[in-house]
Design a protein around this nucleic acid. Sequence first.
DNA 1: AAATTTCGTTCCAAATAATGGAACTAGAGA
DNA 2: TCTCTAGTTCCATTATTTGGAACGAAATTT
Lengths: 277, 277
Amino acid sequence: MPAINEGRMGLNSDGEKGDTRRGRETGTLGKLMALVDHVALADGPMRFTDILSLSDQPRGTLHRQLSHLVEEGLLEVDRDGRYRLGIRLLNLASRSWARNEFRAVAEPHLRHLQELTGETVHLGVLRGSEVIYLDKVEGRQSVRMYSQIGNASPAYCTGVGKAALSALDDLDLAGRIAALEFRAYTAHTHRNAARLLADIVEIRVRGYAFDREEHESGICCVAAPIRADDGGMLAGVSVTGPAYRVTSQKLQQWAPLVVAAADSIMTDMRNRLGPKR
Amino acid sequence: MPAINEGRMGLNSDGEKGDTRRGRETGTLGKLMALVDHVALADGPMRFTDILSLSDQPRGTLHRQLSHLVEEGLLEVDRDGRYRLGIRLLNLASRSWARNEFRAVAEPHLRHLQELTGETVHLGVLRGSEVIYLDKVEGRQSVRMYSQIGNASPAYCTGVGKAALSALDDLDLAGRIAALEFRAYTAHTHRNAARLLADIVEIRVRGYAFDREEHESGICCVAAPIRADDGGMLAGVSVTGPAYRVTSQKLQQWAPLVVAAADSIMTDMRNRLGPKR
DNA sequence: AAATTTCGTTCCAAATAATGGAACTAGAGA
DNA sequence: TCTCTAGTTCCATTATTTGGAACGAAATTT
């Protein structure tokens, strides 16, 4: 009832989608998606009251909002009244994935890169200051191939993420870095903006990024940036493997291959988009 | 590289009750999700005007709605102004999938069933009159393992779908059948409610369902129903393979294995849910 | 090159849907 | 039985969405 949003509108210099969670000017949808987020980020199914405590809204309002979300299939509720993400999301995502032309164009190149190196290849896109993995190609794949696709990881401590960040212009980069919270996933994780920036400067010079156990202990990778040019979208490819097998020399040796794959993907994208523009 | 099972998915992406597309009482969210549906069902990216012609709304209104959807990441727009599904959906779906306890409980059983039969095993849940595939285990898996997961297929001509339908009570079954549109995917597809009902009666007696090239030529399967009991949810497991390899005798021989797997999954689910209820 | 049509975007009074307080029901415990 | 907590429904008030109209920019035509 109070005029909550007095001041926020005008000054909103949101050129970027740095998802600050506060600046969302999306009215009703924003409120509803915030609820979906709460459910998505929780460890398990949530009861009505759990959600109530996270979203300071009156019970009546929350109840209607959740009902609408359930009705639309974005959430599901079991007979114990516990809410979880709805299966419609899986269905929509599967369409989104199947029809993603960037992914489709990249796929053969990922596979080729996988064959050249024998290690796992990832394709991820930058969204805000996170990387979302779009595809993954493993060699003698273990069972859970599906696992990584759709996952989000912080851009500042992953190979794909840093590669993508390095392709931003300085202004945009500064904006996204400002939105970061540095967290020490491992002993090698960058702890502040200065270290990250230094790394990114190197990456720009070299043309590729390393991740030496910055996100996960025992996991290293080389990655190269892709300017997808489609919607100003930035992405990256990487070759990833366990540190005991993937030595620094191997990473160095693979770097040109990764860069070549990234370049091929860019070229193919441009060709597919046609001589337009 | 080949998208093996590229869906011919239903016209009707929304399940739940008799989805008259008009009766959605979900206010603003309903209107917005209808737009998402339009984009999801289109063959490719859509221009503003394409969507405008499908959704009879004023240009100004549509523009704001699409902006909100883009802002929230449910849709994306490239610099040519073409809309497609947003990558946030992939991220949400990946969480939804990873945390789905039903899927997690079923997984070892699917794997076991795959080893016993050597053919592909599917897990799907019933949503409205469609089946959405939750998991898939292939033997020497080819590349596109991901493909089927999240896909929707009509319940009336798939093994998993018919098995799940057979576990409904008569009233509910009648309701869902009434909502069906029969389409002849192959020469063996049921063409009307009577044939389908007769099949379902047999399935109830036997305890398992066959699909002999009803949805896709050259593809057969045996499936058993799972009463997930979680939210009144119904599901099914199936073993699927090419007709030249999967003979009628084999299907018969596998039937008890499939039923056993379904039963094990049910038991595990009940145990995990605890002695509650 | 000017004129016209199409496409996309912005604005604001009017219409509509969301809000939030309160009243109500159902279960669980004491 | 009574009380407490969890969840659901109701309805006047308020905020958000709506839709027409007007605007700017491209593309197409004259």
